[in-house]
Each structure stands twice: as C-alpha cells, then as structure tokens.
Design a protein around this nucleic acid. Structure first.
Lengths: 145, 145
DNA sequence: ATAATAAATGCGAATCATTCCTATTCTTAT
DNA sequence: ATAAGAATAGGAATGATTCGCATTTATTAT
C-alpha cells in the first residue's frame, strides 16, 4: 500500500518516481518523528541502496514542496518530519532529546494578527518548547550540586 | 557608561573582564538585534582587535550564562542577541531576511500547561514567524510566473 | 516495446560555519 | 610587583551539507 501511495504523491509533484524517493517517503512515514538525515539514511538503507547525497537532495525537495517539516536549533543536526494532517509543535527534552509532539496550536491567528500589524504576509511559524522530561528531571534533582 | 556596566556584568559571572568581552557586550548592546557571529565580529573590530574564535567563545559563554539568546534555523547562520527585559519573538522576511522583533508573547502560560500535561518541566520555548515583508511581497507579486 | 532526453543518482571533492589546539598574553588576587 | 590561572589569537581540524559531473534511470513520444 505504501509504494503505490508514494508513487502518486511524487508524480503529483511533477517529479520522477524513483525507488530512492519512494523509500525515503516510506522511511519518513514509518519513523513519523523529526529525524536526522543520518537516521533517515540508515532507515532507507535497510531496504534500498542509496547515497547520503540523494537523501539530502530529496529531503530538501520534500521540504520545499511542503511535504515535510525541517527543524533544528543551532549546533543541532537538521531534522525532517513528514507533515501530518494537522499543524504540530514539539516539546524537546534538553537532556535526553526525547521529542513529544503536541497537537493543537495557539498561534495561527496570533501570527496573522502580528503580520497585519507589522505589514508582513506571514506564511509560517515555528515553535518549540524545551524542558526536562520526567526521567531527566528526577536525575537532575539527584545530581544537582 | 557602557564600559563600567559591562565590566561589572562580567565580574558577576565570575569571569575575567577582558577588553574583548567588554567590546562584544558593547557591540551586542549597540546592535540590539539578532546578529550573526560575523556581524558581531565586524562590529567589535571597528573598535578593538579580536579574533573570530574569541567572539565565538564569548558569545557561547554569554548564551550559556543566559545573557543572550541564540537562534537560527537549519541552513542559516546562528544569531545571538542580548536579552532584553522582556521575552521576545521575531518575524523574519523569507526573502530579504529582515527581522522584526515582536514584544509580547502568547505562549508563557500555554507552554507551562503543555508541560504539565506531558510531564515535562518546560523551561524555555522558541518561536519565530516567517513571511514576506511589504517590499518583498510587492516584488514577489510582480515577478510571479 | 524502443529510443531519445531530461531528470535523478552516486560518489568524491569542496564549502563553510564552528570548534579545537596550544603557545603566548593578560587579569586578578596576593 | 608577582604568581597562577584564565583568556586570547590564529591556524588547523571537524563535520554537516552542498556541489560537480559522469553514469544510470524514468518518462514520453514514436
């Protein structure tokens, strides 16, 4: 079922449906979390030969076509994630990097309103929250100086 | 007035008050916007000799001590900005990279609430809005295929 | 089906921001 | 003023990402 879907998805973009592209989309779909290029590369390789530059190129393509998100703070590796139906944000653990996806976004109308005020056409926004997950927070308490 | 203030600021951190550090803080204060390391380096150089690695090291120090913000999306250069009294967000033009600082944040309580729900201690969040500034939006209309 | 052709891939080289190394210099506390 | 440790300079190293180009592949028209 996967293969056929992705084939259509790619064709709709006016791009060639290559095994690598289908495999990348399949991997993204299976992972379903913001993953690094390397992680995606490894996941794809489990089933298909690919080069890392192909993965880079296609993730960038998917992002520019709006099929994935692309995130990553300074010093971190870039993470791509297949977009879900609904706009989402993430909550990231500062210690263990665990990522929780939060659905529901309080910013849609706010962003537009700010855009109006500042004479911008706002087309997107990004938001991430940082903190300590339960486990790491406990650990932190125990180790704190 | 600058010099003396920054001298005290640095000493309070338990760090040595070097001319480079004072100059970097002065530059950040004058620029007062999220600036790239290179921009800050150039600004500092107008008045003092410095090496870029010193700028890097000290910006990182200031960030880890909580005196600056640090932002930058994948593929962009990292930007540092002296923290103001109030928490702020930015609105960035996708074309010309103009950055408008937005005061007022609708996320404070939201972040805490999400943290409670997900068992995270949320300590920070980041949000940026993207769009086209008036000028670039006009240009975009004119050039669109 | 087949050939033509435009696009995509692979892979090594190049890039570029950032970090690291370490000899030298500067700050600070005594 | 001096000693001891911290900070700096600047060049080398790193590492993620991009680029160039020869080769392969998917698509379209025949």
């Amino acid at each position: 079922m996967d293969a056929i879907d992705w084939d259509q998805t790619i064709r709709k973009l006016g791009k060639k449906s290559t095994p690598q592209r289908r495999a990348i989309l399949t991997a993204l779909s299976r992972m379903n979390r913001p993953a690094t290029v390397e992680e995606i590369f490894v996941a794809v390789r489990e089933h298909h030969e690919t080069s890392i530059s192909t993965v880079y190129r296609n993730l960038e393509l998917l992002f520019s076509e709006g099929l994935t998100t692309k995130q990553g703070f300074p010093g971190e590796k870039t993470r791509y994630c297949l977009k879900r139906e609904h706009h989402e944000h993430t909550l990231v653990c500062i210690d263990c990097q665990k990522i929780v996806t939060i659905t529901g976004c309080p910013l849609e109308s706010y962003a537009i309103e700010v855009g109006r005020r500042e004479n911008f056409v706002v087309v997107d926004h990004r938001m991430e929250m940082y903190g300590y997950c339960q486990q790491c927070n406990h650990l932190r308490g125990r180790l704190s100086k």
